[in-house]
Design a protein around this nucleic acid. Structure first.
Length: 594
RNA sequence: GGGGGUGUAGCUCAGCUGGUUAGAGCGCUGGCCUGUCACGCCAGAGGCCGCGGGUUCGAGUCCCGUCACUCCCGCCA
């Protein structure tokens, strides 16, 4: 008989009755009846009930071993009486009568309870991640993650993509997020950087002629975390293709994403994914990552208020601002509208105007200043009627869009308007190539500087840069941005011009992106790609609100690994070898850990 | 860097307008219990009320500071 087990803990069935079996695992739960003890033994696969009574030799040992200890149980598989069958367990028709009981590893009193639904605090969970991972939900999430990644690999390979590894130790990139730096022992004063993404490498793979590349790629960015953004590191499904236009990329990625989401969830994935121009997304949804499960849409009503008697909005429009209207189904009451207004003010907005709609037209301070025909026109545009309200966000185009967009989300949640059984994907396309930095007034890249401008060199030379669009797109699912992507700029002249508009000299570009720029001069195929976030994909499929729930060993919000103690101190000898000298003020004393 | 929330037993939390000995569930320890499956019943131990200062006759509760965790803004081309 095998030293540890003949069966795992989700294997024994009626057909095994009468045989002797051996199982090993953790003591999940014990039910002690004094003269009779039940033990639920747990391993990766499931639970098996073991039983022992007072006359057995092992009784005392079973009774005193604490939960989460690791034990090996050998015994006879017995059919349970019909009234004691547990239909909730796959192994619930049988149990194991304990003949021998061996403790392989004892557990102390637990800092968090593995067998309870109740969540411990984040700090405890992260410090004792190995215990947290034993719990059912988290354990299942990580299994799901493994299966999702395996499915993605299979789907990509079947489509003719090849998976390559790109360097982890590379050069610091001057744009974008903060880099993690790695000092060089051989080159005093010089540093590697961990890649923020394999962006330049994957483009070079295309120039090397491999045609279609993908990688489940680790990416490193030294930026602050969010609930949907893990600090430090994350994984992307990094993809690049040669000789393609935008729709070719969509045609490859759409079935992969839809297939994976359908394979691992019970929800529907409507196809084809909607294509929404960026400017339309900002107008209708007030965001560049719209949740299309929410049926509400925002409408521009600036023309109606232009020159109207409602002075605040008329002045806004006259000053170049806009007024946006959001339908509020069933919101036709003072209490609801006042609450929306107070909420808007809590966000720092001046307020949120409203019209309450009754059988006989509109009520409220705005409606009283407008002609009936104007109110009727707004009803028509927003599709509202008696019992509803229309909410208004006024201000600069960006401010009004943001407020209306947030109000749209809030109403959707509060009134439960959104679908709950769907993954609504969309492609947001036609992003602007440049944007004006509000603080400095300068023009900079709004997204990836390597994207191809629509209209090419001609557009860059003749158009207002702020009007130039890029072959730049996002894939969004249920309001979560999964990825940006682009058709790349593979033409050195266009690239130098594009960078010049953003304030970079040719020398700057050569110095910073020389490797790739040089490659463009020896025959570069037109190419493009995308890089959906793996962690966010799994998070959506697992229906988890926080990205830590789908990562084996996540760091906390301050980018610390509480279990391993990272980042940690290193020895003076290590630093000397790396030509590094500390330059930190004396650490404040009294820290809980060194 | 900024804003919000939280911090009370090993864990999850309650603790009112400041008031006498700070509670519950789970866990832990001991006892009882032969068909449970979140077993049940009885008893017990366990508290720097995050930390420091202040107001007050009196602070878990109010004020100031600080630390930690978390959510958000900035940031993430």
């Amino acid at each position: 008989m095998h030293r540890y087990r003949t069966h795992h803990c989700n294997e024994l069935r009626v057909e095994h009755v009468g045989r002797t079996a051996r199982v090993s695992g953790w003591i999940h739960r014990r039910r002690d009846h004094g003269q009779l003890v039940f033990l639920d033994l747990r391993d990766h696969f499931g639970l098996t009930q073991c039983v022992v009574d007072a006359e057995d030799d092992t009784f005392a040992a079973v009774e005193e071993t604490r939960v989460e200890s690791v034990v090996t149980v050998t015994g006879r598989v017995v059919r349970r009486d019909p009234e004691t069958v547990n239909p909730r367990l796959p192994t619930g028709e049988v149990e194991l009568r304990i003949d021998s009981f061996e403790v392989l590893s004892t557990a102390g009193v637990l800092p968090l309870q593995v067998n309870a639904e109740e969540d411990a605090g984040e700090e405890t969970r992260l410090r004792y991640r190995f215990l947290d991972l034993r719990r059912e939900r988290l354990h299942a999430n990580i299994v799901l993650r493994s299966q999702v990644i395996a499915s993605i690999r299979r789907r990509m390979t079947e489509r003719g993509f090849m998976e390559f590894q790109t360097p982890i130790l590379t050069a610091s990139s001057p744009e974008g997020a903060r880099d993690f730096l790695v000092p060089s022992r051989l080159h005093p004063g010089r540093f590697y950087a961990l890649p923020q993404a394999p962006q330049q490498f994957k483009q070079l793979v295309m120039m090397a002629g491999y045609d279609r590349y993908f990688q489940i790629a680790p990416c490193f960015r030294d930026e602050d975390s969010r609930a949907d953004r893990s600090p430090g590191e994350f994984y992307q499904l990094d993809v690049e293709m040669s000789f393609v236009e935008q729709e070719d990329v969509f045609a490859e990625i759409e079935p992969v994403l839809a297939g994976v989401f359908e394979e691992f969830s019970d929800r529907t994935v409507p196809r084809p994914f909607a294509r929404i121009p960026w400017s339309e997304a900002m107008l209708r949804y007030g965001t560049d990552k719209p949740d299309l499960r929410n049926p509400l849409q925002i409408h521009d009503v600036s023309d109606i208020f232009d020159g109207s008697d409602f002075a605040i909005f008329a002045k806004t429009v006259a000053g170049g601002g806009v007024v946006r209207a959001l339908p509020g189904p069933g919101c036709g009451s003072r209490a609801i509208c006042d609450r929306m207004n107070a909420w808007a003010q809590s966000l720092g907005a001046p307020g949120m105007g409203y019209i309450i709609l009754g059988e006989d037209g509109g009520r409220g301070p705005i409606a009283s200043r407008l002609a009936d025909a104007a109110v009727a026109e707004m009803r028509r545009r927003t599709g509202t009627g008696p019992g509803d309200a229309i909410f208004f966000a006024a201000g600069s185009e960006a401010d009004a869009a943001r407020l209306a967009g947030q109000a749209r989300i809030r109403l959707g949640d509060e009134r439960s308007l959104s679908e709950t059984d769907t993954y609504r994907f969309c492609w947001v396309v036609d992003f602007p190539m440049y944007e004006r930095d509000e603080a400095t007034g300068t023009v900079g890249f709004s997204h990836n500087p390597f994207s191809m401008p629509q209209g090419g060199l001609g557009a860059l030379e003749t158009m207002d840069p702020l009007d130039v669009l890029a072959y730049q797109y996002d894939i969004v699912c249920n309001g979560v941005e999964l990825s940006s992507g682009a058709i790349r700029n593979h033409l050195p002249d266009v690239m130098l011009k594009a960078f010049a508009i953003a304030g970079y000299t040719t020398a700057d570009v050569e110095a910073r992106f020389g490797g790739m720029l040089n490659a463009f001069r020896y025959g570069a195929p037109p190419h493009g790609g995308i890089a959906p976030g793996i962690d966010r994909i799994v998070m959506l499929i697992a229906n988890e609100p926080n990205i830590r729930e789908v990562i084996l060993f996540p760091m906390n919000q301050r980018a610390e690994d509480l279990m391993m103690g990272a980042p940690g101190e290193v020895s003076d000898a290590q630093l000397r070898e790396l030509h590094i000298r500390r330059n930190v003020r004396a650490a404040p004393t009294g820290g809980e850990r060194p």
